[in-house]
Design a protein around this nucleic acid. Structure first.
Length: 830
RNA sequence: GCGGGCGUGGCGAAAUUGGCAGACGCGCUAGACUUAGGAUCUAGUUCUUAUGAGUGCAGGUUCAAGUCCUGUCGCCCGCACCA
């Protein structure tokens, strides 16, 4: 951005006033954004104007934004957009008489801080404190109306004591377990990653290749809440996109478990299928390379060497590679062991192939090549029989997977039925004959909950040689991070805490003997999974939050944040809240009433902002050049709030110009407690429009409407105080500093922040005269102004009688005339 | 591959139930004022042969389509051998 030379705005406005001096009763100082904004920020924050009051008589309103990770780079323009929507809503709610809780805090555990600490030999605590300080200053410089007395910091032992407490509660209720698992490990960051953090086989953080590593992993049994999390979505008001992403992430599918007996054995192979109706078409079976039956039947398998070789090969591939190689399916037939289709009673072969995943369903499938494209591909390659059981497609060419039109064939029990009916009948048959049962499966997996890092919440678990795994007693919380000089990751994938003997060695709470602490820490998602509860009672030493306070504040009324947090964070936090509800800690099953998401601001080159691209916009530079009000107005004006949009430096000037215009019209304001007659209707329309637009996150059009009103004001010789005040009131939530200053300049002794939000009068929106468009065959040909009481019959007569219209319809037959009230008249001619 | 969204001037974008396409802003052009500036004010600004044409493209429904339907192309986001 090109820095503005000096303060030419201020300079010129000074001149303007010199020229106008004689019109003014007193000299009006020019709008010095730096001075004015600082002045009001000091008043607001010092005098606690935005403090939320527990148990106030007023109706409560809880607005929540995703608390930031305090990175060293300071605030990003994205933070500004993310927080502005609810800052505007919160400010509006206060003016509407609500007791507003609009808190902020810091999600401060995390890898960048730890990495910076290692590189620069500064303790993460020092860095975090420094960064938080910067963030607070920047948030205040932007004029956000947060209640800064309720700040939380996830790295504060007083906070993470309760994060650990929740973990222990989950443990106590059997929702935590330890298991050996293949985990995604990033050799560069030396850290275990979740599936979500290693999408595409690349580390989320450093973009290096992720490898598979066998590790003992702490899991949270989130799958136990899959159904509840799905059902809870009915209580969450959100866009269809937000809802669908969550549904997809949980990923429920319904079908059946079916048991296929293994030949010459009393065992059977259990599969999950969503298409039990196609069972007569199951001509072979496929099991995942990791399937335990390989080991179980090793003595009967004639080609064990071949199978083992395939297994080993599959293990080498990451999940990502297995997907990448999807097009070319490979597999090996297991010689010596086969299965029996329980409905056809035919013996069918079993294959091992990596297109079946051990992590989903039972790790085994019944393959129906006629009606599943993957099975079709496999059957074609290995020349396996393809039997049509649903009529409607051409199975010589491709699998027929339609479930709407098809009719069952070659299936004695269910011939002639639709897919839907066949499913029901076959499930009943399977259940009656103990061959299977109706079943649900979820895509969601249990939450891998440990990381090998220093800068995270220690997992409160102790290992005792005698007593085994012992949870830290509640009264011993928090398990604090040791303040040490060194926190260097180990090469073995162990946490840096493992090197700190004073931390590791402890006594067993049960037998008092020597014991060792768990050295892994929690993932960054932990602290953010319950922070909205802490805001309601942030300084409580005895519990995570007092129940009475949670009862008063209730659900979060409106939660805004990024689209990227709609699955992981939102589901994790809903899970914890639901669990806490089930054990009687929280008062609502679902934590949020409404969730919205802002669109991202791209660089001016339409690419995602990044340091390497050099297209990053620094909001603080804009504030020091143009002021916070200009930044706020522009960020909200730039486009639809929920859409991604490129940044544009030049547009800032438009926002500043708009505010300047309002500032400059101050001398034209003359005492008067009524709206100017000429402006009255437009003022009412604007109040209505702006208020509705704000509620719908349409800040861009709300500002456009105020700009239009200001343009009208500018045409007036004089304005009444009423005209001017109402503008300041509706603009205040968006540009709070300049409006507050002008409000004071009008002689008010109380702050605009506490003023009531203007209302409009429906009756004043009524128009005596309306402009109508007359079109002929859909093309606009003329415009007329008529009395709003004119009847439809009169309108029709009027329409055909104008000179212009006559010229168009002369010599033609009028077929019909359509009148759309208040909009247009269309004459259809031949 | 599946699911969702988007495609409108030189640019960011507007446009209830289908009803004047381009509100508002940026930029640009011309003029005014002037202490010569990146200030302010006034007028203009989709294209055009001045008749029309025009919302990615091709059809359709309708008195009327940016909006609804069918097909197609392009971009973005999410999920991805999920059985």
């Amino acid at each position: 951005m090109v820095p503005r030379k000096n303060s030419s705005f201020t300079f010129c406005r000074g001149l303007f006033y010199l020229g106008r001096m004689r019109l003014m009763s007193e000299f009006i100082p020019s709008f010095d954004e730096a001075k004015v904004e600082k002045k009001w920020q000091e008043i607001w924050y010092k005098d606690k104007y935005f403090h939320a009051n527990d148990y106030s008589e007023k109706e409560k309103y809880y607005s929540l934004v995703e608390f930031p990770y305090p990175s060293g780079a300071g605030m990003h323009i994205g933070h500004i957009r993310a927080y502005l929507s609810l800052d505007v809503i919160s400010r509006k709610r206060r003016m509407e008489g609500k007791n507003v809780l609009f808190p902020i805090g810091f999600d401060a555990f995390g890898l960048p801080t730890e990495n910076y600490a290692i590189q620069n030999q500064i303790h993460p605590r020092t860095i975090t404190d420094r960064n938080i300080k910067t963030f607070i200053n920047q948030l205040k410089a932007t004029g956000f109306s947060f209640d800064f007395s309720r700040m939380v910091d996830t790295t504060d032992p007083e906070y993470y004591r309760w994060t650990q407490w929740i973990f222990l509660k989950l443990y106590e209720h059997g929702l935590v377990y330890k298991n050996i698992a293949y985990v995604n490990f990033c050799p560069s960051c030396k850290v275990v990653l979740s599936n979500e953090e290693s999408q595409g086989g690349k580390c989320d953080r450093c973009d290096n290749d992720v490898v598979q590593m066998e590790k003992a992993v702490w899991f949270l049994k989130i799958t136990a809440y899959a159904e509840k999390l799905l059902q809870g979505l009915d209580e969450l008001e959100s866009s269809s996109r937000i809802r669908m992403e969550q549904e997809k992430w949980i990923g429920r599918s319904t079908g059946a478990y079916i048991k296929f007996p293994i030949s010459c054995s009393d065992k059977s192979l259990k599969v999950f299928t969503t298409r039990p109706d196609t069972i007569y078409g199951a001509t072979f079976m496929v099991i995942a390379p990791e399937h335990p039956y390989i080991e179980e039947f090793r003595d009967r398998i004639k080609n064990l060497d071949e199978i083992k070789a395939y297994q080993e090969q599959a293990m080498l591939k990451t999940e990502f590679e297995r997907i990448e190689l999807a097009k070319d399916k490979t597999g090996v037939k297991i010689e010596g062991v086969s299965a029996i289709n329980p409905l056809t009673n035919k013996e069918i072969p079993i294959f091992i192939s990596d297109y079946v995943m051990i992590t989903y369903g039972t790790g085994a499938i019944m393959a129906v090549p006629a009606h599943d494209s993957r099975d079709f591909e496999f059957a074609t390659k290995y020349k396996l029989p393809i039997v049509e059981v649903i009529k409607g497609g051409d199975i010589t060419k491709e699998a027929y997977t339609d479930t709407e039109e098809g009719v069952l064939v070659n299936s004695p029990l269910i011939d002639g039925l639709s897919v839907e009916d066949a499913k029901k009948k076959i499930i009943t048959y399977l259940e009656d004959n103990k061959l299977g049962e109706e079943a649900k499966q979820y895509r969601m997996k249990d939450w891998a909950f440990n990381r090998q890092r220093y800068w995270g919440e220690p997992i409160p678990i102790i290992y005792c040689d005698k007593c085994g795994i012992i949870p830290v007693p509640y009264e011993d919380l928090p398990v604090t991070l040791p303040m040490v000089e060194k926190f260097i990751p180990t090469d073995t994938g162990e946490s840096p805490l493992a090197n700190i003997e004073s931390f590791v060695n402890c006594t067993c709470p049960k037998c008092g003997g020597p014991a060792k602490r768990e050295t892994d820490t929690m993932p960054q998602w932990a602290g953010s999974s319950w922070y909205f509860l802490r805001y309601m009672d942030p300084h409580n030493h005895n519990e995570l939050a007092a129940k009475e306070k949670m009862e008063y504040w209730g659900k979060v009324d409106w939660y805004n944040g990024g689209m990227e947090h709609v699955t992981r964070h939102l589901i994790y936090s809903r899970f914890w809240n639901q669990f806490l509800y089930d054990i009687g800690v929280t008062v609502h099953r679902e934590p949020y009433k409404k969730r919205t998401a802002q669109g991202i601001i791209l660089g001016s080159d339409n690419e995602k902002m990044s340091k390497s691209r050099g297209n990053v916009v620094n909001p603080m530079e804009i504030i020091s050049e143009y002021g916070a009000d200009t930044l706020r107005t522009f960020v909200l004006f730039i486009s639809d709030y929920e859409m991604a949009t490129p940044w544009n430096d030049l547009g800032l000037k438009g926002a500043r110009r708009f505010l300047d215009k309002i500032w400059r019209m101050f001398p034209n304001v003359k005492p008067g407690d009524k709206y100017s007659h000429k402006l009255e209707r437009m003022i009412h329309e604007t109040i209505k429009g702006v208020s509705e637009d704000i509620e719908n996150l349409k800040f861009n059009t709300a500002i456009a409407k105020m700009m239009t009103l200001v343009n009208e004001y500018n045409k007036m010789e004089e304005l009444t105080t009423a005209d001017y005040e109402v503008l300041l009131q509706i603009l205040n939530p968006i540009a709070p500093h300049i409006t507050e200053e002008l409000w004071q300049m009008l002689g008010h002794e109380t702050l605009l922040v506490h003023e009531t939000y203007p209302t409009y009068d429906e009756a004043k929106l009524f128009k005596d005269e309306i402009d109508l468009v007359i079109s002929v065959n859909g093309k606009v040909r003329d415009k007329i102004t008529v009395d709003s009481q004119t009847t439809e019959e009169e309108l029709k007569k009027l329409a055909v009688s104008t000179e212009k219209i006559q010229a168009f319809i002369n010599g033609m037959t009028v077929v019909k005339i359509i009148v759309v009230p208040n909009k247009l008249i269309n004459i259809v001619v031949k």
